[in-house]
Write a protein that binds this DNA or RNA. Structure first.
Lengths: 101, 101
DNA sequence: ATGGTATTTAGGCATTATCCTAAATAAGGA
DNA sequence: TCCTTATTTAGGATAATGCCTAAATACCAT
């Protein structure tokens, strides 16, 4: 779970996930969207993959990356639920702001 | 928004937020829950505060930290909605996994 | 085989993060 | 005022991150 939040901490990596929302893209196609070198992008892909947020699959000399939404959902929504922010509505068990001294 | 995800990338900071769910706690009370020094914890608080995730208020020689849930909700749910994971249900516009070459 | 395209690995460097101890600051109570 | 407690700031060591260029690898087509 920590590796998911680590992966999400970089804006390029978050944007990669958003791009993949529409469907699979190759490493090169993804890289074209960012002002950093391809090796740098490759490092970002590796981190997203290690976190289980994307999958890479070889196809005809290219590597097609696809989103793994369920990992994102489990980690992030799991945390948000623990924070009392569920899908249904606002906070669940209201924080009473009582200071236990 | 990036500062929120930065702040969430450390497990201690995520756990601090979870502790504060129940209500305000002083820096010392929070620190007692973690195996690192108080100055280190102070640094974590500063980062959470800079991201707008907690507020600190002086009270009788102590500093009481309280959660700012709305910042968390806006940043994280905003991103999740952009990813097609809304509060209502699962994915919204299904990714067709078509490779645009 | 040879060449070209796509991608990653290697190596290096600068910056940032994380942690520590020691010292500074702030506030309260004797 | 003086001491104690609570918290932060300062300074420093170490590790991790993010970026680059150059080189290696993989794979396809000629």
């Amino acid at each position: 779970m920590s590796s998911v939040f680590d992966a999400l901490s970089h804006p390029i990596r978050r944007e990669v996930l958003e791009l993949l929302k529409r469907g699979g893209m190759t490493a090169g196609q993804l890289s074209d969207n960012f002002p950093v070198s391809k090796p740098t992008m490759s490092g970002h892909f590796a981190k997203l993959k290690a976190a289980g947020l994307i999958r890479g699959e070889n196809r005809a000399g290219h590597i097609v990356y696809t989103l793994n939404l369920s990992t994102l959902e489990e980690a992030v929504m799991g945390f948000m639920n623990r924070m009392g922010i569920s899908r249904e509505g606002e906070a669940e068990s209201g924080p009473e702001t009582e200071i236990s001294q």
